[in-house]
Simulated assay, not measured.
Amino acid sequence: MMDRIQDLQKLIKLTGDRAKLDAKANGTYIVYQTEKGQIVKEYANGVIEPIDNPGVHHE
């Protein structure tokens, strides 16, 4: 069971890393939830911007 959990954690990390590469290549950002529960945008330059109302469409 631990091997499956470790494999899943590795896949999740690789997926996040790939998303960051794609965002950098396309000049966009990734969106994720922090450990504290905040939804944020992270840009390729390292800037992290909180999203105050994640259910509201701004663009």
Rank of each mutant, 00 (worst) to 15 (best):
A25S: 07
V31I: 15
I48H: 04
K24P: 03
K10R: 12
D7A: 14
A19R: 14
L14D: 13
Q33Y: 07
K13Q: 04
H57F: 09
K20I: 07
L11W: 04
G16I: 04
L21H: 08
P50N: 13
K13N: 07
V40L: 06
Y32L: 12
T15S: 05
R4H: 14
I5C: 06
G27W: 12
L21R: 12
A19P: 02
R18A: 06
I39K: 14
G27N: 13
T15G: 00
E42I: 00
K13A: 10
G46F: 03
M1R: 05
A19I: 01
Y32D: 09
Y43F: 15
V56T: 10
E42H: 04
I51A: 05
E35P: 01
Q9M: 10
A23K: 07
L8K: 08
I39Y: 07
I12E: 09
G55I: 13
Q33E: 11
M1G: 01
G46T: 02
Y29G: 06
G27Y: 09
V40D: 08
Y29W: 14
D52R: 13
D22Y: 11
T34A: 07
A23T: 04
D22G: 03
N45L: 12
N45P: 04
E42P: 05
E49L: 13
G46V: 14
I5M: 13
Y32F: 15
T34L: 13
G16F: 08
E49W: 11
I39D: 02
A44T: 10
Q38G: 01
L8A: 12
I12T: 06
Q33R: 10
G46H: 11
I5P: 01
M1N: 05
I12D: 01
E35D: 07
D22E: 11
P54S: 06
G46A: 09
Y29S: 11
I30P: 01
K20V: 03
V40I: 15
G55M: 10
I39H: 05
G37M: 01
R4F: 13
M2I: 15
I30F: 03
I5V: 10
D7P: 01
I39R: 07
I5E: 03
I51L: 09
